[in-house]
Write a protein that binds this DNA or RNA. Structure first.
Lengths: 245, 245
DNA sequence: AAATTTTGTATCATTTGTGTAACATTATTT
DNA sequence: AAATAATGTTACACAAATGATACAAAATTT
């Protein structure tokens, strides 16, 4: 009997043991992590149904962990917090957590909340039926303003004369990411995540430089850019009309 | 703009009024019932998204009401209880309630929980470039009085001619915060918290200045403002009719 | 491993955004 | 209506964000 797989993320070793024992005897498979890093790791390795998440962790990712985990899995997230602070509750729920429970809690309550969360995620509750599936399969060639054509099979950008702009793969990925979210401002961090692995450091200017290089190759004047606009305080945005093929 | 329809079932008249006002100014349509019988009736008549349910009712159906309501609608059920009794919580969640909140609660928390419940019931967010877009509960474009359109993906405000008003991100955030709590007076401190980090100093006039700049760009005469009104001794309030897209 | 290409860091210049202070205006109280 | 308090306005200075350039470090190719 396996009711589902739960990832428990908490620093507190004793609590981990208690939770683990209870939930296992309840029929769940329990995976444990005691810091944000391993949490993300485990989330990538297992098919999770629910994540119990304490936001106070030694490598303290805190709130940002919620969207990160959601990117990695489709599991429900229950924030387990030491504080019963309304603002935090709200923020958590708004960031996408499914529920919020305050320590100390009774195991029975935790179990009930887990059930409630998993129940909601069952197909029967899913109202997705009839909703057009997101088009994952994107065009192989995308043309835009100025006769440019991004060829996603060749990893190259061609101009109106069909001459290659000699983009590097990094530049290509960045441009692709921008185009796929055209007319939407994207933060540097977001762009970083979309185009490469590793940790983004807030003072990292790498994206800026790459944008500058891209602009040059796109002949987009950075003083008054027409294609890649900078959104001050936010990041960059691809502007313009895009056509798929 | 209609975020959804909520049925509030509670015996307490005052609470009903408070909840009703808050949620309505929040963009929900609110229907009220003060006993189990009318609750069932209303549930049959309307397309509900969320039901706020106090189980202590004059004709005291209590817990059995949960499955009955679920038979009638597909709305999410949030149990609003006077007791913070774990057993009751568990029973409610097990009977199929989606959430449980204990009186007294802050309206903000209630609002957040409603959002969380409705979010879960929404169709999946569109997945562009494999990135799950951080899904707000809110519209991407909000239009209001005078043909203005706040584009939350571009971080810009456009006028009726679709020309950008050149808001800075700070100004944008402030306007967004005001709009999202339209027709509700917000204190400077609250606005500060909503739009930036750090500590608010009571003698800080920064918000005033930013309001002034916003008004100018919105062509809102500060002598007789139509869009952002001053609420003396309190703060500011966005007035007007807002439409989501 | 040398050469080449690609990417990142450091630095400085420039632009843009925002708070402060001082004063003007409007509202409220006396 | 005077006095007071709250808010609006403006100019200015400072801070922060971004762009540009040169160079260093990786990564890739030869």
């Amino acid at each position: 009997m396996n009711k589902g797989t739960i990832l428990s993320v908490d620093d507190d070793e004793n609590l981990q043991i208690v939770i683990g024992q209870y939930l296992e005897s309840d029929g769940y498979k329990v995976i444990k992590a005691s810091d944000a890093h391993t949490a993300m790791e485990k989330a990538g390795q297992h098919e999770l149904d629910v994540i119990l998440l304490d936001l106070v962790l030694p490598d303290g990712e805190g709130l940002t962990l919620i969207p990160q985990l959601q990117k990695e899995t489709t599991a429900g997230i229950i924030v387990v917090s030491g504080k019963s602070d309304t603002t935090e509750k709200i923020v958590c729920l708004e960031m996408g957590a499914d529920d919020y429970i305050t320590k100390p809690f009774e195991m029975r309550e935790l179990s009930a909340r887990i059930k409630a969360v998993t129940r909601r995620r069952e197909p029967s509750h899913d109202i997705r039926a009839g909703v057009s599936k997101a088009k994952d399969d994107l065009a192989e060639k995308i043309t835009f303003e100025g006769g440019w054509c991004l060829d996603r099979t060749q990893y190259q950008l061609f101009d109106a004369q069909n001459k290659t702009a000699e983009l590097t793969t990094g530049e290509f990925k960045l441009l692709e990411a921008l185009i796929l979210s055209a007319n939407r401002a994207l933060s540097r961090e977001h762009l970083f995540d979309l185009t490469r692995d590793g940790e983004f450091d807030a003072y990292d200017r790498a994206i800026d430089i790459q944008i500058a290089r891209l602009r040059k190759k796109l002949k987009d004047d950075s003083k008054a850019p027409q294609i890649i606009k900078t959104v001050r305080g936010v990041g960059y945005m691809f502007c313009g009309h895009v056509e798929n093929e």
